[in-house]
Computed example of a mutant assay.
Amino acid sequence: MATKDLSQYDANSVPSAQNIRFGIVVAEWNQEITFALAEGAINTLKKHGATDENILVKYVPGSFELPLGAQYFAEMENVDAVIILGCVIQGETRHFDFICQGVTQGTIDLNLKYNKPFVFGVLTTENQQQALDRAGGKHGNKGDEAAITAIKMVALKTSFQ
């Protein structure tokens, strides 16, 4: 199964991020991967006009804590969108399934509860190499994709107002 380069997109199709405030919550577990995702997201936001002052980054211990960290952004910061970045790598036990399910459902719940974009930028891979390939490797950077999604979703919401 082919995977596209997550960093390739039509830059002209992305609205300006100039006046948008972003929260980014990053899991510290698998930080070689997650910090690369955060760097990709931040660089992409800036490429589209976001300023340093409008990009707030916070860290949580692991991917399971991402939804709560994202909720803190919604409740304690004036952000237009929250980008959720983590990495869960398949192990020998079902722990992977429980973490992935919890983070996914938590993100869905936040989108609906707060009526603002909470963008799922969590890698769920079979091994370390697949994660590296998607955090700036041969498949690009999922952080870039998450940033573009956040910008586009804020623009979509604004178009309804």
Rank of each mutant, 00 (worst) to 15 (best):
M1Y: 10
M1E: 11
M1R: 09
A2P: 15
D5N: 15
S7L: 09
S7K: 04
Q8P: 04
Y9H: 14
Y9F: 15
S13A: 15
S13H: 06
P15D: 02
S16G: 07
A17W: 04
A17R: 01
N19W: 07
I20D: 02
I20E: 03
I20F: 11
R21I: 13
V26P: 03
A27E: 05
W29I: 11
W29G: 06
N30E: 05
N30K: 08
Q31G: 11
I33R: 03
I33D: 02
I33W: 02
T34H: 01
F35T: 12
A36T: 04
L37Q: 05
L37P: 02
A38S: 14
E39P: 05
G40W: 00
I42C: 08
I42R: 12
I42W: 09
I42F: 10
L45A: 03
G49S: 10
G49C: 11
T51M: 10
E53Q: 15
E53N: 14
N54V: 11
L56W: 08
V57H: 06
V57L: 04
V57F: 07
Y59E: 14
Y59R: 15
Y59G: 09
P61W: 01
G62A: 11
E65P: 00
L66R: 00
P67A: 02
L68T: 06
G69D: 00
G69L: 01
Q71G: 07
Y72H: 12
F73L: 10
F73P: 13
A74K: 03
M76I: 08
V79Q: 01
D80H: 05
V82C: 06
I84G: 04
I84R: 07
L85E: 03
G86Y: 00
C87K: 09
C87L: 10
V88E: 02
V88A: 05
Q90Y: 10
G91C: 03
G91R: 02
E92R: 12
T93Y: 11
T93K: 08
R94Y: 13
R94N: 15
H95T: 06
H95I: 11
F96D: 01
C100E: 05
C100S: 15
Q101A: 15
G102R: 07
G102P: 00
V103F: 07
Q105I: 13
Q105K: 13
G106Q: 00
G106I: 00
G106N: 02
T107Q: 09
D109K: 11
D109W: 05
D109T: 14
L110W: 02
L110H: 02
L112G: 07
Y114F: 10
N115V: 10
N115S: 14
N115P: 08
K116A: 13
P117W: 01
F118M: 01
G121E: 00
G121I: 00
V122A: 06
L123N: 01
L123Q: 01
T124I: 07
T124M: 12
T125H: 04
T125C: 15
T125E: 09
N127P: 03
Q128F: 14
Q128G: 06
Q128H: 14
Q129S: 06
Q130G: 11
Q130A: 12
Q130V: 06
A131I: 04
L132F: 11
R134I: 06
A135W: 00
A135G: 04
A135D: 01
G137I: 00
N141T: 07
D144Q: 09
A147V: 08
I148R: 04
T149M: 13
A150Q: 08
A150K: 06
I151W: 03
M153D: 06
A155Y: 09
L156E: 12
L156K: 10
F160L: 15
Q161K: 14
